[in-house]
Each structure stands twice: as C-alpha cells, then as structure tokens.
Amino acid sequence: MKKMSKPKEYTSKISEELFQEMTEKEWENTEKKMLLAARIDEAIKRKGWSKKRFAYEIDKSPSEISKWLSGTHNFTTESLWQIENLLNIRLINLGHEDNTAEIANLKLIITSTHVRMLNRREKLPTSYDEEFSFPPITIPTSNESSKQHYQA
C-alpha cells in the first residue's frame, strides 16, 4: 500500500518577523553570492577537476576553495579574473557601454538673402565613430534667381 502520511507543517513566528525586516537588496546580494559559487563549482566539474586539483592549479589552499564555493564568500575582482581565465568562463560582464549620442538640434539659420546650413553633407554621429546623412532639402525663396537647392 502506498504511503500517504507526511510530516506536519510548522510555522515559525520568529522567522516571519525576521523575514519582514529583510530588504530586496539583501536578498539580491545573498543570491548573487550563492549563484556565483554554483557557477564556479559547475565549471570545475565540467573541467573534470576535483576541488583539490583546482586549488593546485590556482595556487590556493583547499580550505580557501571550500570557502569560495560555500556561497558566502565576497570575491575580489582579481580572484574572479583568475578563475575566469583558468576555467574559461565569464563571471564579470564588462560589455560596452551604450555610446549612442543624442542628436540635440539641427540649427537652420535663415537670413534675407541666403540660407546657411550648419549640418551640411556630413553625417550626424550616432556613436563615437559613426555618422548618418541628411536627406536633401529645397528651401524656396521669394526671388526665383536666388532659389537654390541645398543639400545637407
């Protein structure tokens, strides 16, 4: 006959009170430390290494490695880079910052006899080394002879 009885559920009052005091940031920090340790642990296993072997390769004591993998450790960036290089994994993301420049405004200065375009045929930069082009524009004037086409 299939067993059906399970242990009773217990509610801890003191736990409830303490949980209410915890901030989202605290949860996030603890989670990050634990997931980081798990990722390193998995990478060591993928390499087919024991923790002892990993300690040897990275020139640390086995007890220090145990601490690294406990999920409670605060790593230095130097340690993380060392681990990244040895295990061929990415732990620190240093992706490029968004360098899109805002196009502020296009100035069009019009005098009675001529039009001067500040942004000529050049492309406007959207990044530090990129540009885009204006479409050609025609600016009518009252005097037909002075009618000119300008291209940006």
Binding site: K6, P7, K8, E9, Y10, T11, S12, S15, E16
Partner: peptide, 9 residues
Amino acid sequence: CKLVKLHQY
C-alpha cells in the same frame, strides 16, 4: 520530538 516541515523555508 516530531519531524515537521518548515513551509516558510
């Protein structure tokens, strides 16, 4: 003693 499940955890 009795084994109980801590559902909050």
